[in-house]
């Protein structure tokens, strides 16, 4: 099923991802990290189904373990020494810090996995086009020509092989020579054929000012609503850290803010903001269910 968040305006989506990625980096508070991790996980499973397991086991968990283990081995700050490894103190604070950074890294990686699913090249091109149409065009061209050149290199290798000048045969020097000649052939081809591309672009007015970008996405009421909610969530974060509702210190000793009702209210606001995609998906699924049961 297509993700509900996929259809949202890329600018709103981008702000959401920026928020989700940056918050854990700014404030490595265990409550924030926990919420961020859980929300990212729920959405990733919605996006990728069972395939998410492979990603988590092969990629996310190793990163977490590595970070959690390495930090206390090399970071000896903190006042609560637990034990020594070869005269080096291992402190409680550095263990906590290691675990927190592991959780932070994991949440960043998980949000990034979601970002990759949602942010196709079209959205990146659109997003850049809003602010820098020239750059957006360059990205779009790179996305076209890098794969094209790769394909062409393969064709050249095949052509050389068919003419008895393949890379597979002969001594190492001979093979290296063949490889070089493929590269040189590719470069010549790229330069020569870029003349055509340049002609075709110029004949369609490339270089005229001001350049605009075709907006393949609209900004509708739903985008405004989501954008507004997102702004509220961000505002609550700013207020919470501004008024020291939430704070954390790792060294020399571990200390967090006091737990107050307002702190809980903030956590709920934060969680709801991060759950926007998940909630959107649930609402959509429920609507489909309703409209079907009416039939």
């Amino acid at each position: 099923m297509r993700d509900a968040f996929d259809t949202i305006n890329p600018i709103v989506a981008f702000v959401f991802f920026a928020f989700a990625l940056v918050m854990p980096m700014l404030l490595m508070h265990p409550a924030l990290l926990g919420i961020s991790l859980v929300c990212a996980l729920i959405w990733l499973f919605m996006l990728r189904g069972k395939k998410a397991w492979g990603y988590i086991l092969k990629f996310v968990l190793p990163i977490m373990l590595l970070t959690a283990i390495i930090n206390p081995l090399f970071n000896h700050a903190g006042i609560t020494t637990l034990f020594y490894i070869r005269f080096n103190p291992v402190t409680l604070e550095s263990i906590i810090y290691g675990v927190s950074s592991a959780a932070m890294l994991a949440s960043v990686v998980l949000w990034f996995a979601c970002f990759n699913q949602i942010f196709t090249s079209d959205k990146i091109v659109y997003l850049l086009g809003r602010f820098a149409p020239g750059l957006s065009l360059i990205v779009s061209m790179a996305l076209r020509f890098v794969p094209l050149f790769t394909k062409q290199a393969k064709r050249i290798a095949a052509a050389q092989r068919g003419a008895g000048m393949g890379v597979d045969g002969g001594s190492i020097i001979k093979r290296a020579g063949s490889g070089l000649s493929i590269l040189s052939s590719l470069i010549t081809w790229a330069l020569e054929s870029s003349v055509t591309t340049a002609d075709s672009m110029r004949s369609r007015g490339y270089g005229l000012h001001p350049r605009k970008s075709f907006a393949s996405y609209r900004f509708d009421g739903r985008d405004a609503l989501i954008g507004g909610l997102l702004a509220l969530g961000m505002l609550s974060c700013a207020l919470a850290s501004g008024f020291k509702l939430i704070s954390i210190r790792f060294f020399p000793s571990y200390k967090t803010n006091e737990i107050t009702p307002l702190f809980f209210a903030f956590l709920i606001a934060y969680a709801l903001t991060l759950l926007i995609p998940v909630i959107m998906n649930s609402i959509e699924a429920y609507r489909w269910h309703l409209s079907r049961s009416k039939l």
Partner: peptide, 29 residues
């Protein structure tokens, strides 16, 4: 329009290629 279709195309997506000329001309959305 020239001979070689492959190299005349500048962008990665069909919609973008279609819009290319209008983008250059700065046509409104």
């Amino acid at each position: 329009v020239m001979q070689d279709p492959e190299m005349q195309i500048a962008t990665d997506k069909v919609w973008h290629e279609l819009a290319f000329g209008l983008e250059s001309l700065g046509t409104d959305q």
